[in-house]
Amino acid sequence: MADQYDDTYTESQVILTSVKIIAPFTLTYGLFMTFHGADTPGGSFQGGAIIGVTILMLAFAFGIEPTRQWLSNSTLVALIAGGVSIFLGVGLATMALGGAFLEYELFDEVLGIAPKWGMETIEIGGIALIVAGVVITLFFATASGFTPERGTDSSSSPGSVAGRGGDRDSENGGDDDD
């Protein structure tokens, strides 16, 4: 059935328009939550998730395949891997300065940066990137293409596939209750 994703996708002016109106707001909200998580409820996990969901919304409006091509795969991989490296990098930097993993006080002592900024780096550069990247990646990986044998399988007609699965189910549904 998923083979039909791109077949059934038809541009809808209504959805496109409202997504065009709403997407900037959700993106801003996600960024606000990420950047302002230190002093108000919210933080990088939530903000990253909302940023990721914004991309999902765009994918629903513009079609999943075009969105995936627009947001190339290497960008996503770079997003996730970059997040993990930034997190690890900050942790190792404090160790290089002679402290423990993520001991932010050292930034203050050695470089004169308040410990808060170390945390913000972790939050914005680390966790938010990882969460947003993983959410988008999981969505595209689950939504995208088909293994060839299934593609031929379902090409006959979607109804037949559903019917076959349904028959099998109802047969066994009868059996298992006895």
Binding site: T8, S12, V14, V19
Partner: peptide, 25 residues
């Protein structure tokens, strides 16, 4: 008020999407 604005936009859009995909199915 912002929430009100978004509800007024998103709710009909969601209904439109559902009805449209139902028609296409």
């Amino acid at each position: 008020v912002l929430l009100l604005f978004f509800v007024f936009i998103t709710n009909p859009t969601a209904a439109h999407a559902i009805a449209r995909s139902a028609a296409e199915t």
